[in-house]
Write a protein that binds this DNA or RNA. Structure first.
Lengths: 223, 223
DNA sequence: TAGGTTAACGTAATATATACGCTAAGTTTA
DNA sequence: TAAACTTAGCGTATATATTACGTTAACCTA
């Protein structure tokens, strides 16, 4: 039994204005579900790892390389409308919103949509977004996820807002600050925010080398 | 481009005598890699969810239902020897060793093998076992994994040995005991071990209802 | 200058994790 | 039958993380 295999991509970004995680949706040009908003992707048409296919599709769609790409899982389409056997592999990716925005004249075809206000998506795309989000939440406990979605230099407040959006919980700013200060890979800069209408905050940045060192000593016990 | 899709199954069990996690390997009957030890599985030949396919293959292989089945991930075979396009989806499962042991006359075809002493496996099966193990370790932090692999009634010592095998670290028996006592879903019984050549231990069992209640209040914060 | 807003520092209480001493209750062996 | 051995099981002290919340400082706007 033979299958066509599609890759579906959940591309996350973080909107600093709205303090919201967003997902890139495109309007489908072909049937089925023609004209509806759905996840970008396409059929696997090269002999290569699925991750490579996903990265290629994303580059074609956005024109830039995503900075983080992980598989969510594979899905069998149990109800294929055509006689065609279909399977799909979902990937989630991170893309700094500053690096890609749909062209103004293309907002009808590609758009960032708030995770909290997703429309109903065709096929199992809704499920895939939820699964990907869950995976992203887990990944962020072990990996430097936020730094892919924030500008290189950022105030602690922005980092906190990001976590609040990711986990959908309010965080205490004093405890959050304390926690971050304990992370050796987030380093303070001798710079402050510009052009804000309140006391400007000190800026911080991610230190890759310090992270690598830290990662190795983070071996959790079973309980 | 069309693909054949295989499911590969990593079936874990726990050997109480050896204090070792084990994986079920079968001897391949067909080429490629004919005669070598490899993961059980087979091609997807029905229009159904991959998990259903995996469960079915496992039932055929072992004659029993596994108690836990989760997808690891999908893999593209980047180097298919035949012109055939191949993809595979790996699943890991848990099976109490007491419920299934290869028949004595079939040990040449199916065998439990210690995780710590796996032979070199063909294709990417070695990688898949490692990935599955990692996933199992993660799952055990959030789900009642050990209780699928231990007898219904067990002494705390056996539970500790299981965790030591899963994470490959020694644990302090006093602290471990304290930790378990804090888990509302592991309940003490009014029974003790039989036939051991030392002081018999009190027996414990998993309480499903208590676990469900506990699970809901276990909402971890971001940090 | 007053009021609003966020930054930034701090303290106390609680919970969790880690290290390790010790006694108890069985079995085995001499 | 007593001594030696093995694992069960209890407890205490210390360090580390988490949580709650009070307070002042710095900058903006009106």
């Amino acid at each position: 039994m033979l299958f066509k295999i599609a890759v579906d991509c959940i591309i996350f970004t973080y909107d600093q204005q709205a303090h919201q995680l967003q997902v890139l949706l495109i309007r489908r040009e072909n049937a089925p579900a023609q004209g509806e908003w759905a996840l970008p992707g396409g059929f696997v048409d090269q002999l290569e790892d699925f991750a490579v296919t996903a990265a290629r599709k994303l580059r074609q769609e956005t024109g830039v390389d995503v900075s983080y790409l992980e598989q969510v899982q594979a899905y069998a389409l149990t109800d294929p409308t055509a006689g065609q056997r279909l399977a799909s592999v979902a990937y989630y990716a991170l893309l700094d919103v500053a690096h890609y925005a749909p062209a103004a004249d293309r907002t009808h075809y590609a758009q960032w949509v708030d995770l909290a206000q997703l429309p109903v998506l065709p096929f199992d795309h809704g499920q895939k977004v939820q699964d990907a989000w869950r995976r992203l939440q887990e990944a962020a406990r072990h990996r430097p996820v936020p730094f892919h979605l924030l500008p290189r230099k950022f105030p602690l407040n922005h980092l906190q807002k990001f976590y609040e959006a990711l986990y959908q919980v309010p965080l205490d700013n004093r405890n959050f600050r304390k926690w971050v200060k304990g992370l050796p890979y987030v380093e303070a800069l001798a710079e402050v925010e510009q052009g804000v209408s309140h006391r400007p905050s000190q800026l911080y940045q991610f230190n890759t080398a310090a992270y690598s060192a830290y990662e190795q000593i983070t071996q959790r016990t079973p309980y």
